[in-house]
Design a protein around this nucleic acid. Structure first.
Length: 290
DNA sequence: AAGAACTCCTGGATGC
DNA sequence: TGCATCCAGGAGTTCT
């Protein structure tokens, strides 16, 4: 499941493969994959034909290709989305939903997505309120991620402490800080020895900043691993595969001993999914906000 | 209006 | 063995 590090691997790969190239035709094979493009699949294709991609950018888990007409092709990978560079003669993947062809002989760009939570859309660019950065319309409410120049953890801490909710809900709130998903939230909380239901209001500013620093650390480590294996035609999303086994301390580790205290990691229902924590070093706080 | 719940989806894993 | 159920979860939508 792509979170910030996995999306960044895709972004950097795409930047190398598609920047400067001109789109010839776009084939939408599954309308659902462009469902957020309000004007429909035909308009989606029409707006891309003839456009040249100037750069590939990212905020949190959103990535977009800036076009030469001041619009952007925005992509979100959802749970299982992949953006692949494939030679034209390569057989279609089972879940190939959108094919973007270029006016040259180099590989085409394919959007492949088994669970179809991801999608593509063409949007205007707008100025967002935190850094004044030029982003696609629907990214306008997504807060800066910890790797952006100008990211201000003090600002995040102030906003977060004002929320009436639990700390993990806040970490997952892309309007507060973006890029963090279920995996890295659990890992950052373990590193900071915090329970996921600790109320945001119980945190001091420095405690929030420490937690954010841990999130940065774990995502940097993941990015370092995902980045190493990427040097082929294949712009992949499973940067998680190598990372999963080696470095995760709590996520998916139910029943295994905590690397700090030896207590068995527990899995608990949370927001219709799961939270993993060590019952020894991440104690349930008073006034827990589930 | 903020915060929480619900919803979308597929296929591998699990249970009987 | 085969069928049914569970489970993964990002973010837009709907609810309270």
């Amino acid at each position: 499941m792509p979170e910030l590090p996995e999306v960044e691997v895709v972004r950097s790969g795409l930047d190398r493969w598609v920047s400067g190239r001109t789109i010839s035709t776009v084939q939408v094979r599954l309308d659902r994959s462009v469902r957020h493009h309000s004007a429909g699949p035909k308009d989606f294709s029409d707006r891309l034909s003839g456009r040249t991609i100037t750069s590939v950018q990212r905020r949190g888990k959103f990535l977009w290709m800036v076009l030469d007409d001041e619009h952007a092709l925005l992509a979100h990978l959802g749970m299982s989305g992949q953006l692949l560079m494939q030679p034209r003669q390569e057989p279609d993947e089972k879940h190939l939903h959108v094919r973007i062809s270029f006016d040259d002989d180099a590989p085409e760009l394919r959007f492949v997505d088994q669970r179809t939570f991801g999608g593509l859309r063409v949007e205007d660019l707008v100025t967002e309120p935190w850094l004044g950065r030029w982003v696609p319309t629907s990214v306008g409410h997504i807060a800066p991620d910890p790797f952006e120049p100008g990211f201000d953890s003090s600002l995040v801490a102030r906003a977060l402490r004002k929320k009436a909710t639990g700390i993990k809900r806040a970490l997952l709130d892309q309007g507060l800080i973006s890029g963090i998903g279920n995996i890295y939230a659990d890992e950052a909380l373990w590193l900071a020895r915090r329970h996921y239901a600790r109320p945001t209001g119980a945190f001091t500013g420095p405690q929030v900043r420490e937690l954010i620093a841990h999130a940065q650390d774990v995502m940097s480590a993941a990015l370092a691993q995902g980045g190493t294996s990427f040097d082929s035609l294949y712009v992949d999303v499973n940067g998680s595969s190598g990372y999963f086994d080696r470095s995760l301390n709590v996520y998916g580790q139910e029943g295994l001993p905590c690397q700090r205290c030896g207590r068995a990691i527990v899995r608990e229902p949370f927001m219709n999914r799961s939270s993993f924590r060590c019952p020894g070093c991440q104690r349930t706080p008073p006034n827990a906000h589930w």
